[in-house]
């Protein structure tokens, strides 16, 4: 099996069949990471470049481990976009990288659409590892894999996504992916964090966290970015955490078997209380990280491996 796609730019472009194929492939790869020798020769001789224009620890490490466990050669490039002539970095870097013949370029960039630009420039497969506030498809896929693992299904679940929806690529990718798979999505946050016409993406919208998580099977909390305070997106962390922090009390409104997710890194005590984040009976945050490696292995395999 192979994905009939050159690139993975976003969940918007993936069909239900493609999502199922990726998730099933990822599930079959989970076992490799439990072996004593965590390596298979599947992508031996392939080259994967992780091109990160934005700081990242987990996602970059996850892609690197995924590539290495499939025996690909992985190269990490961290570049800053702070130079005066901004975008030239991307175009020139892309053309230079292309000339070195890698098989996949994984890109993270603070500018929405940067992977699309890269895709138009180079013949190699592009995987979007997060572009601005646009999409983060591998995060959504690992979230979907985790939900499926814990709940056995995605269809019919009520999933609440809470926090700064406006600036969240995780929220957008999950909304696309999860609604395609038949989940009911509600989003919650202060009005200043809900982007205009978000309801047209097929979600219900709440300003109150309690309303959003009532009866939820899954609650996904988003990281609050401190610099938004300066833009008056919210008045203070104190006020935000009083009303939008998932804690022992409000989680009772969700289903008894609710699972709690977070794309990380967590602001403990801001959007999620430490006792919830660390509670193994509901928190699946570390399962997400574990599944992240498997999902990225699956994507790499489906894009450039398994030709026969």
């Amino acid at each position: 099996m192979k994905l009939e796609k050159k690139d993975i730019l976003g969940m918007q472009d993936l069909s239900v069949d493609e999502i199922n194929l990726i998730l099933e492939t990822a599930e079959s790869f989970l076992e490799i990471s439990t072996r004593e020798i965590k390596k298979v020769p599947t992508l031996r001789g392939k080259t994967i470049i992780n091109l990160f224009f934005e700081a990242s620890t987990r996602t970059r490490t996850s892609f690197e481990i995924a590539g290495k466990r499939l025996s690909a050669d992985t190269i990490n490039i961290s570049s800053s976009t702070s130079s005066v002539v901004k975008g030239e970095t991307l175009i020139d870097t892309a053309r230079n990288l292309e000339a070195m013949n890698p098989d996949v370029i994984v890109i993270r960039h603070s500018a929405a659409g940067a992977p699309h630009l890269l895709s138009s420039l180079v013949k190699q497969s592009i995987i979007n590892a997060g572009d601005g506030a646009h999409e983060h498809p591998t995060q959504a896929l690992l979230d979907m894999m985790t939900i499926k693992e814990k709940k056995g299904r995605i269809s019919g679940l009520k999933i609440a996504i809470a926090g700064d929806i406006a600036h969240s690529r995780v929220a957008r990718s999950n909304i696309y992916g999860l609604t395609k798979m038949g989940a009911e999505i509600v989003v919650a946050g202060p009005a200043t964090m809900l982007p205009r016409n978000i309801e047209q993406m097929g979600v219900k919208v709440f300003n109150n966290l309690d309303d959003a998580i009532t009866g939820a099977d899954v609650v996904m909390m988003l990281r609050i970015q401190l610099e938004r305070q300066k833009q008056s997106v919210f008045p203070s962390l104190r006020e935000y955490s009083q009303h939008y922090c998932l804690n022992r009390h409000n989680i009772k409104l969700a289903k008894n078997d609710v699972i709690v997710m977070h794309p990380g890194p967590i602001n403990r005590g801001v959007e999620i209380s430490p006792d919830i984040a660390d509670d193994p009976s509901c928190s699946v945050i570390l399962n997400q990280v574990n599944n992240g490696v498997a999902v990225r292995m699956a994507l790499l395999y489906l894009l450039i491996g398994g030709h026969e």
Binding site: G113, A133, R172, P195, Q200, M201
Partner: peptide
């Protein structure tokens, strides 16, 4: 600023 700024993740000009 509207549906397309929302789905494209680009900041909107209202």
């Amino acid at each position: 600023e509207g549906y397309y700024s929302t789905i494209l993740g680009l900041n909107g000009i209202p």
